[in-house]
């Protein structure tokens, strides 16, 4: 196994005029893993992918992809990567096969090699039924998968997926996820950006959360849950009109603002006190007329971790 990291960024800064899209970003991504860059809209995810794919030059700092510097050896980096962007860059007037063969030729395959590469990718992504139809007839999910395929025909070491399922319906999302998992099983390293936590959960081993151009947290998903998530007390009630009352009790006990989910008839609040707080909440609820369906302490969900991480950053940043 190689010890060269997949991606290594040191003080990486990318400026557009006065705006810093990436601001002294530090990040090390281990090779042999699926890496998800997670962050809200505008966090710098796309800028980062564009820098890794040599479409943007760093204004400051360094960025290495598989040990090669993007500023000094962009051509070598381009041979190692395959980019599938947010907008599916397939040519609608060409068939899926023609699209793949075209990209394969541009990767450097001779004509017959391009044909072979296209056939293999079509089979691997289960696009056989539609491969000889023009892409203008494809569904959103099929286009996205073909775009994925186009980045694969050059057998890149690193596949870059920028928000691969944004705008897709749930079934198409599953299809894209399955394809990505197959690729990973076949040994391609993947870097994907997403603002969907479930997507990171489904696909990634290693997660880096960025916000406002900085790395906020990095590690495995369970690391993140363990390190930044406080336990949550959650109460499910029978009558949604009583949620407000439950929320007040949670706030009084935990000193944290509660989240009220009216549709799910649930109120929750993070707690530092764990079981002790839970006992107090139960006793307090006993003295009221609230009909409790369910009550307990649980680990935070990814959503909660994500909100904690990114909000914490906003608060720190604005208090400076």
């Amino acid at each position: 196994m190689t010890t060269v990291p997949l991606i290594e960024a040191r003080d990486l800064t990318i400026r557009f005029g006065k705006v810093k899209a990436l601001d002294d970003l530090d990040l090390t991504a281990p090779a042999g893993k699926v890496l998800a860059i997670l962050g809200p809209n505008g966090a710098g995810k796309t800028t980062f992918v564009r820098a890794v794919s040599t479409l943007l030059r760093p204004t400051g700092g360094t960025l290495q992809v598989l040990g090669k510097d993007v500023s000094r050896e962009p051509v070598a980096v381009r041979r190692d990567i395959g980019l599938a962007g947010q907008s599916a860059a397939v040519e609608p007037t060409m068939t899926g096969r023609e699209n793949l063969e075209m990209t394969a030729r541009l990767f450097g395959h001779p004509r017959d090699g391009a044909r072979r590469a296209a056939s293999i990718v079509i089979e691997r992504l289960s696009l056989g039924d539609v491969a000889d139809r023009r892409c203008s007839t494809y569904s959103g999910g099929q286009r996205r998968r073909l775009d994925l395929g186009a980045s694969l025909v050059g057998a890149p070491r690193l596949l870059l997926l920028d928000e691969p399922t944004t705008g897709l319906d749930p079934i198409s999302r599953r299809e894209v996820w399955d394809s990505v998992r197959d690729l990973v099983a076949a040994g391609t390293d993947v870097l994907l950006t997403t603002h969907y936590l479930d997507e990171a959960n489904e696909l990634a081993d290693h997660v880096i959360v960025i916000d406002h151009g900085h790395t906020v947290a990095a590690g495995t998903l369970s690391d993140l849950k363990a390190s930044s998530g406080r336990d949550v007390i959650e109460v499910a009630v029978n009558d949604p009109s009583q949620l407000e009352a439950v929320g007040h009790i949670l706030e009084r006990v935990t000193s944290n603002p509660p989240r009220l989910d009216h549709n799910g008839r649930r109120a929750s609040a993070p707690t530092a006190g764990g079981a002790k707080d839970l006992a107090i909440v139960i006793r307090t609820l006993d003295d009221t007329s609230v009909m409790v369906d369910e009550i307990g302490v649980r680990r935070p969900t990814l959503d909660e971790v994500f909100l904690t991480l990114t909000n914490a950053y906003v608060q720190n940043g604005s208090s400076r």
Binding site: S53, L55, V75, R78, I81, G82, Q86, S87, T103, L160
Partner: peptide
């Protein structure tokens, strides 16, 4: 450029 095809070309070793 808007639809991402140019990005694809620019990310290729050509």
């Amino acid at each position: 450029r808007v639809e991402g095809f140019t990005d694809r070309l620019l990310s290729l070793p050509i």
